[in-house]
Design a protein around this nucleic acid. Structure first.
Lengths: 206, 206
DNA sequence: TAGATTGTTAATCGATTAACAATC
DNA sequence: TAGATTGTTAATCGATTAACAATC
């Protein structure tokens, strides 16, 4: 079953959710105008996006903040906790493992994995580094839902394949590589060099 | 002067550039079909995107790889080196500083800055950590073009403001905060928790 | 020439937003 | 009631892609 919520809307829901958190606690409702200004989008877009969650605003008043927060959380699936396995115990994997936002949103790093035998058994960011060979067992035993690839580009496809073999259906790729996954796997890519190159495009144009 | 190249096209140019790097060196031309397959997009889109750089393909043959690489580099402004200042010497700032891709694409970390007096003067990822108070002087003296924010969310706006005061016109924000910048400043945001929440949306739907 | 592939048009598709009736 | 703001429609805008003439 395909989601009726457009991907562009989905990518804005986390922004709205964070925006609500920044509102003063004395405020109990907020308007689409206010949300739009804080999130940096058009107010008609806010109303349209929120209407996909069901229409829970009050005309003349706005949205009840705590109710809206619950609805956003429910829509995003943030009503349960998710196990995260990070592959790559280098600087990036270590920074990701330490990321405080994980637990704030219900994510838990259940393993930090690396292929380098010199790293296996050491403690990085409070986690024992485990062997890449163990990935399948780890994912299954600890019921991990999300895989993060924080390896060099050349290893990325192999890591993705092993995640998928183990049953992971959501992958976040920090390696600067385009990788192939079956249609049922959701893959997102975060790529520093792409971001930098988009900046230099504009620097160069300006 | 506004760029005639659409933002969606700009964001794909780095992907094409990297894709060329992955081609066997025995190959001297490539078709839009091949590029499309490797980059994961439609071949008509590849041709349209590349046509913005000028029409340099050969009908019946394809694109000359080394020529196309040069054109992509030129379009993205990767024909010079750019100084990068990173604010935030925590795990993320440290990982970013260590990122090998910087020098590969002509970026150079010219300073790593932190507001925490306990960190100032220590060496992180091979760089002396300098004080946030020095930011303006550092940017100007070292001619930094790009600012990276790797601080907690609450500091992000202040860091952006100080970057802008110092003359930085390109900012990459890793802090989970929406920040305001004047129209002439290019701001990109990389947000781990947004990415994770988009994944959980799909997990939850599936 | 025959086959291949570009460059570009025009059709399609989808996302954004102005506008306003509904209604608190 | 008067003012405010939602929910939704319809218009607009922009991006994607099928199709094909041009041409190597």
């Amino acid at each position: 079953m395909k989601s009726p919520i457009p991907a562009t809307t989905v990518s804005r829901l986390p922004v709205y959710l964070r925006t609500l958190g920044a509102l003063p606690s004395s405020q109990h409702t907020c308007s689409s105008d206010q949300l739009a200004a804080l999130a940096g989008v058009n107010s008609a877009q806010v109303r349209k996006d929120l209407s996909y969650l069901g229409s829970h605003g009050t005309r003349g008043v706005g949205y009840e903040i705590s109710e809206l927060r619950d609805q956003l959380r429910r829509a995003l699936g943030l009503v349960q906790s998710y196990g995260v396995v990070i592959v790559g115990a280098g600087n990036l994997g270590s920074a990701l493992t330490n990321y405080a936002g994980f637990s704030a949103w219900g994510f838990e790093v259940v393993a930090l994995v690396d292929a380098d035998s010199k790293k296996i058994g050491t403690v990085v960011a409070g986690h024992d580094v485990e062997g890449f060979d163990e990935l399948g067992r780890i994912v299954k035993e600890r019921n991990a839902a999300i895989g993060i690839i924080a390896t060099p580009a050349r290893a990325a496809q192999e890591v993705a394949d092993r995640f998928i073999d183990a049953g992971v259906r959501s992958i976040l790729n920090f390696a600067p590589a385009v990788i192939e996954v079956p249609a049922e796997v959701v893959l997102r890519r975060v790529d520093l060099s792409t971001e930098l190159q988009i900046l230099t495009f504009h620097l160069h144009q300006g």
